[in-house]
C-alpha cells in the first residue's frame, strides 16, 4: 500500500510526465476535451431550442431510422477497424496497419456519402436553414449545422487518416502517430453517439 502511494506521488514530482504518456498524446486528449465542448455548446443550444419551441417537429416523420442505423453501423465499424490498425501498429505489423487504415477510410467516406444523401433528400423535401415543412424553423438550422459540423470533422479525420496511411506505407510513421490519428477518429465516432442519440432518437 505504502509503495503504491509513493509511486503515485512520484508521478507529480517533475522530471517525467505524470500520466506516463507523451505530451503529444496529452495534447490530443486536451484538444478532444475542448473540441468536445464545442459540440456540447451546439447540443446545449439545440436542447434549449427544442424545449423552448412549442412546435418542434416529430422526428419519426422526418428521419428514416433504418438508414440512420446503417450510417451508425458504418461509423462504429470504421472505429473498430481503426482500433485494429492502432493495435497492429503497436505490434509493428505494417501490412495489417495499411489494410485496416484503408478500411477505415472507406468506412468514413461511405459515412460522408450517406450523410450527403440524407442532406439532399431532406433538402428536396423542402428543409433549409431558414424553414422546413415540418414545424419550428430552427429545426432545419440545428440539423444542418450540427450534422454539418460533425461531417466536417469526419472530413478532416479522413484527411488525417489519408496522410497517416501514406506515411505508414512509406515507413515513416511511428505507432504513437497512428494512435493519435486513431484518437481523433474515435472522437468523431464519439460525437456521433451524442448526435445520434440526442438528435435522431430522442
Amino acid at each position: 500500500m505504502e509503495a503504491a502511494i509513493e509511486t503515485r506521488e512520484a508521478y507529480w514530482e517533475g522530471g517525467r510526465g505524470p500520466f506516463g504518456i507523451g505530451w503529444s498524446k496529452l495534447m490530443m486528449w486536451l484538444f478532444i476535451v475542448t473540441d468536445g465542448l464545442v459540440f456540447a455548446g451546439f447540443l446545449a443550444i439545440y436542447g434549449f431550442l427544442r424545449i423552448a419551441s412549442p412546435n418542434w417537429p416529430d422526428r419519426s416523420h422526418i428521419f428514416h431510422l433504418d438508414f440512420i442505423a446503417l450510417m451508425t453501423f458504418t461509423l462504429i465499424t470504421s472505429s473498430a477497424t481503426m482500433a485494429t490498425a492502432v493495435g497492429a501498429a503497436r505490434k509493428g505489423d505494417r501490412k495489417t496497419v495499411g489494410r485496416f487504415l484503408a478500411l477505415t477510410i472507406v468506412g468514413g467516406a461511405a459515412f460522408l456519402g450517406m450523410q450527403a444523401y440524407e442532406w439532399s433528400s431532406l433538402i428536396r423535401a423542402g428543409a433549409t436553414l431558414e424553414a422546413n415543412p415540418w414545424g419550428a424553423p430552427l429545426f432545419g438550422a440545428c440539423f444542418f449545422i450540427i450534422t454539418g459540423f460533425h461531417g466536417s470533422h469526419v472530413l478532416s479525420g479522413l484527411i488525417v487518416l489519408a496522410i497517416t496511411m501514406a506515411r505508414s506505407a512509406a515507413g515513416k510513421s511511428r505507432p504513437a502517430g497512428i494512435e493519435l490519428a486513431g484518437l481523433y477518429w474515435h472522437f468523431v465516432d464519439l460525437v456521433w453517439v451524442f448526435v445520434f442519440t440526442l438528435f435522431y432518437l430522442i
Partner: peptide, 19 residues
Amino acid sequence: IGGNFMHLRSENRVLILIV
C-alpha cells in the same frame, strides 16, 4: 468507445477524470 477503443481504461486515473 472511450475505454476500449481509445484505451482510456489503461490510462492514468487523473487523466480519465480530467477527460
